[in-house]
C-alpha cells in the first residue's frame, strides 16, 4: 500500500505492507535510521517519534495509520549542523553513553517540553519512565531535560551544584 505523510517538514511517500510499522518504514524505507528499534513491543521507548506534536512509540504504530500526518524524528530536532538546545544539554550533562536510547529520550523530552516547558522534576521523571536507558542511570538525562527547559520558555535550572548528590532540582 502507498502511504504519504510528512517527515521533518518534508512530504514523503512509501510503498509498504499493511504490517509495516512506522519504525520500520522510517528506517528501512525512508533511511532515517536515527529512530532506534529496541524491544519492538512498546516497552523500551527507543523508537519514540513525534506525530502532530505528540510523542508515540513508532513500533506500536503502523505506517498506514499515519497517512497525512506530520512526523518529527530525531533527525528533525537539529537545525543543520547545530545541535538543538535539548541535544546540546544532553551533551553538556553527559546524558548519553552508548546512545541507543538517546533518540527516544530526545523526542520524548522535546514533545514534553514543547507542551509543558515548566515540567518539574517529578513530571520529567514520570514521562521518562517510558524510556529505558541501560547506561547512564537516568540522573544526567533528567538533569539535561530540566536544564533544557529554558530554551522552551520554561524556568532556568539551578540544580547543577547538587547534581552529584542526587538531591534533584533546586528551586
Amino acid at each position: 500500500m502507498k502511504v504519504r505523510f510528512t517527515v521533518n517538514d518534508k512530504p514523503v511517500s512509501a510503498e509498504v505492507e499493511p504490517r509495516t510499522t512506522l519504525s520500520l518504514c522510517l528506517r528501512d524505507h525512508l533511511r532515517l535510521t536515527g529512530t532506534h528499534v529496541g524491544c519492538e513491543h512498546g516497552v523500551c521507548g527507543a523508537c519514540t517519534v513525534i506525530i502532530d506534536g505528540e510523542a508515540v512509540r513508532s513500533c506500536l504504530t503502523l505506517a498506514v495509520q499515519v497517512e497525512g500526518r506530520s512526523i518529527t524524528t530525531v533527525e528533525g530536532l537539529a537545525h543543520g549542523e547545530d545541535l538543538s538546545p535539548l541535544q546540546a544539554s544532553f551533551r553538556r550533562h553527559n546524558a548519553l553513553q552508548c546512545g541507543f536510547c538517546t533518540p527516544g529520550m530526545l523526542t520524548t523530552a522535546h514533545a514534553l517540553l514543547t507542551e509543558e516547558p515548566h515540567a518539574d522534576e517529578a513530571r520529567v521523571r514520570e514521562v521518562l519512565s517510558g524510556n529505558l536507558c541501560r547506561c547512564t542511570g537516568y540522573i544526567p538525562i533528567v538533569h539535561a531535560v530540566l536544564d533544557a527547559r529554558v530554551a522552551y520558555g520554561g524556568p532556568a535550572w539551578t540544580g547543577e551544584a547538587h547534581a552529584h548528590h542526587g538531591d534533584g532540582e533546586q528551586r
Binding site: 499493511p18 504490517r19 510499522t21 519492538e40 513491543h41 512498546g42 512509540r57 513500533c59 506500536l60 504504530t61 503502523l62 498506514v64 495509520q65
Partner: peptide, 26 residues
C-alpha cells in the same frame, strides 16, 4: 478492529494473534 494499537500491536508482535484483516477505526 484497530484503534490506537497499544495493546493489539504487541499482541501481533508476539504473534499471539494473526488476524486476516485489521479494520482501522481512525
Amino acid at each position: 478492529p484497530l484503534a490506537g494499537g497499544q495493546s493489539l500491536m504487541p499482541v501481533l508482535a508476539f504473534r499471539l494473534a494473526a488476524p486476516a484483516l485489521l479494520v482501522d477505526l481512525r
